[in-house]
Design a protein around this nucleic acid. Structure first.
Length: 655
DNA sequence: TTCATAAAAT
């Protein structure tokens, strides 16, 4: 006989009642239980206690063993067992407990139904969760809420909304938890249809029932609008909030970051620090703030934030460190990112992924692969994102064979099945390397449904290599899959323009307008003395604008003498050459470069970031300028870095 | 019994 080690209330101490007396002598009894000698008639109570404490300790198997000897398990005991099954991620045990509980007559207990739904949700068994709900006749608001939560987590947002309607029709009142779940359901939909409209309806219900003063609900509202891209609605809710805390501030900052408005994110962070005493930024806030710096390539701001993180003692939190690493890399300081990585005491797969993709966007493909291998050597298993990162690095560096091998190793060595993103990377690798037919073949042979990502990749490659026929095929699919993505129309128009097919350009532009879409205007940023300046090609606001234009014209004339020919193919208008040249010379990144030349001292590196891909003309002009003016110029476009020095670019003209 | 913000990529 052997005794289990466990910590229990005193009733279980001091004698030796064996629960497993029925066991044969060849096998030791499962445990020995102490019984309160003053109350020897009720051993089952102690059994219940024992099961519960075994569950708490994580000894689920033993708890189940004891359960088989307990004639009267209580609700509390089943609760403990259910929780334990979730924690141990054991669906089979969960089903076992469920069966046991039904046999014991607890199948109509709404409390346990709630717990079961939560359990099945955590065990990714949404069908079972649904079944529990269906079979429970007395549905308390807890039961409803639990199913809402489970369905939302499983991505069945639409189903939640249908049920919510049904609940309203039957006349069951929602509580504050229901609203947060339902709001989350609006954005957790698998369908491509935006449920913004429904979200607004739920917002109206919240107002009608007077829930708008609850900070959890309003924060969820901010987040919902953020995910729909409705920044103005989100900020309206935020401004009207009667109570705000760190979470609500963080949600609003994250909203700006997610929607490409990093500038406002930093401003709001400033306001948060200056104007509130009770909402002190936490690690979550700092992650978003670092992303904002990264988006703007605002190195000086980023360094200030780094200092703040150190002062606040948030520098040992993994998500913060990963965001910090990424921030430095995206601000062009790869070596500082590497240093952050080197100084980490503990690393997880995300830290490694951050480093891999950092080398990737700087065009150091081989180095990225080496780090990927080093990660595996250190016993960290690559995740889906690890492969996206390393394949992306191959694509930036033109490493076709390496990319193919890594792609093959996914299933063979790591048992990770490629997702749409991975296929998109492969299409990109082959497409950029002008192996467009091979890229198209990858799509044909995909084992999953090709999503917009892959077709978009192919279309991008068609643009680089000017393949009209394939571009038309890809865009036909894209217009079906994501009719509201303006970028696809613009890409196709670009391709037609390069091929001088002006009628087709007009047709695509009309299509764009008919859908109420607009070409995303090009923007560039530059940070000078901790201040971020932004440029657009039609910019009347910059006080130095005339000076900038004059400098560019002067440089352009000098460059032409040295053999520069303006590349105006990307202009989507059928204009004469001079007019096209004028347009191209006014591109936002050229203005930012000129601004940098005027406002920084000689020898200082100019850092610029841009929201779109760098155009060919800007690329060659910046190469020239780096040589002419003897400056290092770092430009980060939407995909990667270009490090211009002495008339050459780190991308090797491959981007 | 339950609720809100966040890391890596295309």
């Amino acid at each position: 006989m052997w005794a289990l080690q466990f910590h229990t209330p005193h009733t279980l101490r001091s004698s030796s009642y064996s629960v497993c007396t029925a066991r044969t002598s060849s096998k030791p009894p499962i445990c020995s239980l102490t019984l309160n000698p003053s109350n020897p008639t009720k051993p089952e109570t102690n059994c219940n206690h024992l099961i519960q404490s075994l569950c708490k300790q994580g000894s689920l198997k033993q708890a189940l063993e004891v359960l088989s000897h307990e004639p009267n398990p209580t609700q509390h005991t089943y609760e403990a067992l259910i929780l334990s099954c979730s924690r141990q991620s054991s669906l089979s045990d969960g089903l076992d407990v469920h069966r046991h509980l039904v046999d014991a007559g607890f199948d109509q207990d709404p409390f346990l139904a709630t717990k079961l739904i939560n359990m099945y949700s955590e065990l990714d068994a949404i069908d079972n969760a649904r079944k529990v709900f269906d079979e429970t006749r007395k549905r308390t608001i807890y039961v409803w809420n639990a199913l809402f939560r489970a369905l939302t987590l499983a991505g069945h947002g639409q189903e939640v909304l249908d049920l919510y309607r049904r609940m309203n029709q039957i006349g069951i009142p929602s509580d504050r938890f229901t609203y947060t779940y339902v709001l989350k359901a609006c954005v957790a939909s698998e369908s491509l249809i935006s449920l913004l409209h429904t979200g607004k309806e739920v917002h109206a219900h919240i107002l009608r029932h007077g829930y708008e003063s609850l900070v959890h609900i309003t924060t969820t509202l901010v987040d919902m609008y953020a995910r729909f891209g409705s920044v103005s609605y989100a900020s309206y809710v935020f401004d009207e909030m009667p109570v705000r805390n760190v979470v609500s501030w963080s949600a609003m900052i994250a909203c700006y970051v997610k929607n490409g408005r990093a500038f406002e994110a930093l401003e709001l962070f400033r306001e948060m620090i200056l104007e509130t005493q009770d909402s002190i930024p936490n690690s979550v806030t700092m992650v978003s703030v670092l992303q904002a710096c990264a988006a703007l390539a605002a190195l000086e701001q980023g360094k200030l934030i780094h200092g703040y993180i150190l002062r606040r003692g948030l520098d040992s939190i993994l998500p913060v460190i990963s965001a910090l690493l990424t921030m430095y890399a995206r601000c062009g300081k790869l070596e500082l990112g590497q240093r952050v990585f080197d100084q980490m005491e503990k690393r997880d797969v995300v830290s490694w992924n951050s480093l891999i993709s950092s080398y990737g966007i700087h065009g150091c493909g081989r180095r990225a692969i080496k780090i990927f291998e080093e990660m595996i050597y250190h016993g960290v298993s690559p995740s889906h994102v690890s492969f996206v990162s390393v394949l992306g690095a191959c694509s930036h560096a033109g490493l076709v064979e390496e990319g193919k091998m890594l792609f093959e190793s996914m299933v063979k060595q790591h048992r990770i099945h490629p997702s749409v993103e991975h296929y998109a990377c492969m299409v990109d690798i082959l497409g950029r390397a002008n192996q467009l037919d091979a890229a198209a073949k990858i799509i044909e042979e995909m084992r999953i449904e090709p999503g917009p990502e892959v077709w978009g990749s192919l279309l991008g490659s068609c643009r680089i290599h000017c393949n009209v026929e394939l571009a038309e095929r890809a865009s036909r699919r894209l217009f079906e899959l994501e009719p509201m993505n303006a970028g696809n129309y613009v890409l196709l128009a670009d391709i037609y323009a390069e091929a001088s097919m002006w009628d087709e350009v007009k047709r695509v532009k009309k299509l764009l307008e008919a859908r109420g879409l607009q070409k995303i205007p090009g923007r560039s940023w530059i940070e000078v003395k901790r201040h971020v300046y932004t440029f657009a090609s039609v910019d009347e606001f910059n006080p130095q604008i005339e000076q900038l234009h004059a400098l560019l014209v002067k440089l352009s004339t000098e460059m032409k003498e040295q053999g520069y020919v303006p590349q105006t193919k990307a202009v989507l208008y059928d204009l004469d050459v001079e007019e096209k040249e004028r347009i191209v010379l006014g591109h936002s990144e050229k203005l930012a470069v000129a601004f940098g030349l005027i406002n920084t001292s000689k020898g200082e590196t100019i850092r610029i970031s841009k929201n779109l891909r760098l155009c060919e003309d800007c690329h060659s002009v910046t190469k020239f300028i780096s040589k002419f003016t003897d400056r290092e110029i770092l430009v980060r476009d939407v995909n990667r870095f270009h490090h211009f020095k002495d008339g050459i670019c780190s991308c090797g003209d491959y981007w």
